[in-house]
Amino acid sequence: MRVTVTVNGEQRRADDVWEGESLLFLLRERLGLPGSKNACEQGECGSCTVYLDDVPVCSCLVAAGQVQDREVRTVEGLAEGDRLDPVQEAFVEAGAVQCGFCTPGLVVAAHDLLDRVPRPSDPEIREALAGNLCRCTGYEKILDAVRLAAARR
């Protein structure tokens, strides 16, 4: 099938998409946007989190065909040119990035949290990021990064 979708503000089209493909596969393997990550492909780790019409979703759980004529914003669409989003900047500065495989999903999830709750408390940050697994950091510096980004935004 053919899928037409707006990704990071740009209209994109993919042909010969198999019906069983996920939005994650569409982004990574057909649209050249591998930023969203394939850590579990079963909706448990949050590494593939993207905005679908402004709502964060696990793109591995969305069928490619479901995004027809809709808007997707991925981690690649957060920076403006060379200027990182404050959340991205804070992740680098705070040491929240080690292997970085969880980072794209966490950046999108934290970006969404700060859009909804500009000054989140620690329990609010923890609750908002509870669907994103990280194996390297023990989360302490991810919390630091979100606090830092909140203070700057």
Binding site: L33, P34, S36, T74, L84, Q88, V97, T103, P104, V107
Partner: peptide
Amino acid sequence: RPDGNLKVRGEFAYASDLW
């Protein structure tokens, strides 16, 4: 870290990203 910016932008090429 020198790979930090690429990692937060989703542009760091992991083994599963190769094409």
